[in-house]
Amino acid sequence: MTRPLRVLVAKPGLDRHDRGAKVIARALRDAGMEVIYTGLHQTPAEIVAAAVQEDVDLVGLSILSGAHMTLVPRVIQGLREAGAGDIPVVVGGIIPPEDAEELKKAGVLEVFGPGSSTEAIVDFVRREIGGRVNALG
């Protein structure tokens, strides 16, 4: 059956710029999704716990502190250790192109740079995640 997609919007690290994360969270909600928002200053472990317990279809990380190369791989590793390595992760923020490449190699599904329109992000989520089906086990 069709159901609303569940998306976690999380802000890892110490940066406090939550304008973008909140705008994205609202846009995803207005596109009919259920958005779980974690608030600021989340550790990778907290993000993993939220993704697992909320059983989300997608984890979106918003990060502008420059610590992405430390924190994003931590989240991906944590998800794998929690048996949730199948939950896709996307990253938004100020990520230099070479870092974006490296993050994708480390398992990030997509990186959205500054100026990405919320429409493009919503379309991406629908296209890439919308087909996910539930399966036992």
Binding site: L14, T43, S65, G66, A67, T70
Partner: peptide
């Protein structure tokens, strides 16, 4: 940097990856 702005030392666990960045 962010750890300083939030009252953490550079060796605090939450400061990892953030020291001297912004």
């Amino acid at each position: 940097d962010f750890p300083t702005l939030l009252g953490y030392d550079s060796d605090a666990p939450v400061a990892e990856g953030e020291v001297g960045r912004m």
